[in-house]
Amino acid sequence: MPEYRAHLDFDISFVNGGGLSGTGFRLDLPSADLDEPAIAVLLIRHLGLALVDDVQLRSVRIVAESHRGSRGVDIDAPGGGVRIVDLSHRIHAGLTTYPGLPAPVITPHLTREDSRAKYAPGTEFAMDVITMIGNTGTYLDSPFHRYAEGPDLAGLDLSTLVGLRAEVFHLSDGLTAERRGIRRETLVDRDVRGAAVLLHTGWDSRFGTPEYAVGAPFLTGEAAQWLIDAGAVLVGIDSVNIDDTESGGERPAHSLLLGAGVHVVEHLTRLGEVPPRGARFTAAPPAVEGFGTFPVRAYAEVPA
């Protein structure tokens, strides 16, 4: 179904005095046929305002545009059921995920032709060997990736990896080369306790190119600490790293999140197809002992 947002300017006055004004504001709408009084109510609810006296809207335009997570806008799924959005990059021989790390190599262990001599007529199999670093494709970091005493992939609780409530922050139209860091203030309007926080930056469009590694968006350390304090159980991003790889080797987001037992998923894709709220997220790696990072088949279950 198409989604709609209102672009508007506003002036709000309060019963007990004072006022609030905004220009170029954007607000999610449940449909395209709302009148201005209904939009004013949504604006009040989204901003969390009390004791409002009057709302004056100006330059209101309703456009077809994906929702970004305005509060107070709930849309019931019309058909019931769910659709699956695959959020993982495909892995293939020669894939460059993170510049400087080795690409996967896929070689046959048993070809179909050779297998015919080992099985009954008409029966054949292919068995292949893949050699790759754990940081390949879309992958999950366990605490062991950063801390020797932290749980490895085999030590992770599946309940923190499967069917998590997803809070998706659509940030692709708000990040710039001058402001790449995702700040705490951008995240504080959501209840993220027990949730997978997924950061949609749009950087996945550069995946597999040299541009992917340069000027990438990242999560600031202050924002990572806020997510920990707010009770998030997993944080994912569609960028080259959850930290700023151009900061001289510092990794505050990794250090804080993994130190608190919060999983990190990097190199997600297609987050633009997942609504801000209402989806379920899964990203479970194999239970490999003594290993900290491994590819996942990350996906979202979205109300259909």
Rank of each mutant, 00 (worst) to 15 (best):
M1G: 14
A6L: 02
H7I: 12
L8G: 03
V15D: 06
L29D: 09
S31R: 15
D33L: 01
H46R: 03
H46C: 07
H46M: 02
L51N: 14
D53F: 08
V55M: 04
L57W: 05
S59N: 11
E65Y: 13
G72I: 06
V73N: 12
D76I: 12
V82C: 10
D86K: 10
S88M: 00
R90G: 11
G94M: 04
V105S: 09
L110E: 05
A120R: 15
T123M: 06
D128A: 10
I130T: 12
I130Y: 00
I133Y: 13
G134D: 07
Y139W: 10
L140G: 03
L140A: 01
D141W: 15
S142N: 03
H145F: 13
E149N: 15
E149R: 08
P151W: 12
P151V: 09
L153G: 06
G155L: 01
L158N: 14
L161E: 07
L164I: 00
S172R: 15
S172P: 14
D173H: 09
E178K: 13
E178W: 14
E178C: 00
R184E: 13
D189E: 04
R190L: 08
V192N: 04
A196M: 03
H200F: 12
G202L: 09
W203G: 01
S205P: 02
G208S: 11
E211N: 01
Y212A: 02
A216E: 11
G221M: 03
A223P: 14
A223W: 08
A224K: 01
A224P: 15
Q225K: 10
W226M: 00
D229E: 10
A230S: 12
A230T: 02
A230D: 13
G231I: 04
A232P: 09
V233N: 01
V240C: 12
D243T: 08
S247N: 06
G248H: 07
G259N: 12
H267N: 15
E273T: 14
A279N: 07
A279H: 01
A287I: 08
F294H: 11
Y299D: 06
